Simulated scan of single mutants.
Amino acid sequence: MQIIILENAEQVASGAAQWVAEVIKQKTNPVLGLATGSTPISLYKQLVEYHQKGQLSFENVTTFNLDEYHNIEAENPQSYRTFMKQNLFDHVNIDQEKTYLPTCRNDQNPRVQGLAYEEQIKNAGGVDLQILGIGANGHIGFNEPTSSLASRTRIKTLTKQTLQDNSRLFKKDEYQPTMAMTMGIATILDARYVLLMATGKNKAAAVKQMITGPVTAMCPASALQMHENAIILIDKDAASELTEQEYFQWANQEHQKINQTFGLFI
Results as ranks from 00 to 15, higher is better:
197 M>S: 05
254 E>P: 09
79 S>L: 02
187 T>S: 15
209 Q>C: 05
237 D>T: 01
36 T>M: 05
183 M>Q: 10
53 K>P: 12
3 I>L: 12
237 D>E: 15
145 P>V: 00
216 T>D: 11
25 K>C: 14
147 S>Q: 02
42 S>F: 08
52 Q>A: 13
256 Q>V: 04
62 T>A: 14
198 A>K: 00
240 S>K: 08
143 N>R: 00
51 H>I: 01
24 I>D: 03
120 Q>H: 12
216 T>S: 13
119 E>I: 00
249 Q>H: 13
219 C>Y: 00
234 I>R: 00
167 S>Y: 01
102 P>G: 12
123 N>A: 14
55 Q>P: 12
36 T>C: 03
205 A>G: 13
31 V>I: 03
123 N>M: 12
94 I>R: 01
90 D>R: 05
255 H>Y: 14
62 T>R: 09
117 Y>M: 07
59 E>D: 14
141 G>S: 06
36 T>K: 00
61 V>W: 01
43 L>R: 06
72 I>M: 08
161 Q>S: 09
55 Q>T: 09
225 Q>D: 11
111 R>P: 08
244 E>H: 13
71 N>E: 09
250 W>T: 12
186 A>H: 10
188 I>K: 07
121 I>V: 05
140 I>L: 08
250 W>L: 15
72 I>R: 01
144 E>H: 01
221 A>K: 04
53 K>A: 15
209 Q>K: 09
112 V>H: 13
128 D>V: 00
199 T>G: 10
170 F>D: 03
14 S>P: 07
104 C>E: 07
261 T>P: 09
196 L>K: 05
177 P>A: 03
153 T>V: 05
75 E>P: 11
109 N>L: 06
206 A>C: 02
263 G>E: 08
2 Q>S: 15
2 Q>K: 15
164 Q>I: 04
263 G>Q: 08
97 E>R: 11
252 N>D: 15
10 E>P: 12
72 I>Y: 02
195 L>K: 08
95 D>I: 01
144 E>P: 01
224 L>R: 06
130 Q>W: 02
141 G>W: 02
36 T>G: 06
160 K>P: 06
247 Y>V: 06
206 A>G: 06
196 L>T: 01
106 N>A: 15
189 L>Q: 12
27 K>Y: 03
101 L>N: 11
238 A>K: 03
195 L>D: 04
15 G>K: 11
75 E>W: 07
157 T>E: 07
189 L>M: 14
62 T>L: 05
133 G>S: 05
126 G>E: 09
104 C>G: 07
118 E>K: 12
240 S>H: 08
18 Q>D: 14
203 K>Q: 08
236 K>P: 07
40 P>N: 07
44 Y>F: 13
132 L>Q: 04
244 E>Y: 14
216 T>A: 09
